[in-house]
Amino acid sequence: METMTYSTQDIWTWWLAAYLYFGGLGAATLSITFLTDMYCRANPRLVLWGAISGVGMLALSSLVLFGHLLHHVAVIYVINPMVLFQEPQAWIAWGTQFILWMMVWGTLYAVPYMRESPAFLRLPLLGTLLQTRFAIWLSGCCQKRRRIVGWLATINGIGTAVYTGLVIQSFPAVALWHNPGVPLLFTVSAFSTAFAYLLIVLYLGKPSEHHELLTRRYELFDLILIATELVILFSFFNYTLSGSESGYRSAQLLWHDMGWLVGFMGLGLIVPFLLNLKGVVKGWSTSIPTIAASVLVLIGGYLLRHYFMYTGVYAYPW
């Protein structure tokens, strides 16, 4: 048809961007924490902080989505694990299961550490629960099968991070979303923001025995991930410049917007990249630049999803 109408959408807006952001951040935080604990150095404080905040972020993400549903009772169909056999083609079904099981395995992994923590045992309700016979048995089981529990959590965490990209990739009409780069970009961003978050936790918390080793490694990983994100975004820039009118219109919206250019690309990626690069190569005499870089990465992570949701363009032939 000769006529066209171009339109952005107002169906999945900032709340969905928040859902994708906290889902990816929480899942990646848990995965990194458990992998560090299993293969780098056992670190109870990191596990406790990572598990509590990670599960908290996943719960917040789920609540945001749940709150915006039109028919709350029908959510029972996606909570049921059988949904993976009934609707295996729907990424939201996978994502819901990943998030739910991530919270379960994430909590179980942290239970033995909670039982060893005097602060947790002193907590009013949780402290009593942790000292019950069931909690002692559960903690023993999780301790004995620590790596199995850790890997189950990690697999669900990676699944959640990839899902946050796959869910918007499954919308075929919008070129910005419907391409293989989106899951990759969102996964890299989820892990980058999680490293940034854990760096803040490490720097603001009481320094542990392996503080220096961990922070150096996390800074290096974050630097690599930010660089990867920049490369992916550069390829997105080229991809959207031609090929489809939908993609081109998205490019016009994105690359002419100061919030995207200065806010996300500049302050959310390039500035933290340079700060981390200096930290990794020469080191900083204070932790402030690294903390500042991490805060910027966290803000940038949200902005990425926010702008992605708002600049997807539908091309209607009427």
């Binding site: 169906i11 028919h71 075929p172």
Partner: peptide, 18 residues
């Protein structure tokens, strides 16, 4: 099926025909 629909709106996002 209105009884099964939880209203996540993913279908509206996926539809190229609004």
């Amino acid at each position: 099926d209105p009884e099964r629909c939880m209203g996540c709106r993913a279908c509206a996002m996926a539809c190229p025909y609004d």
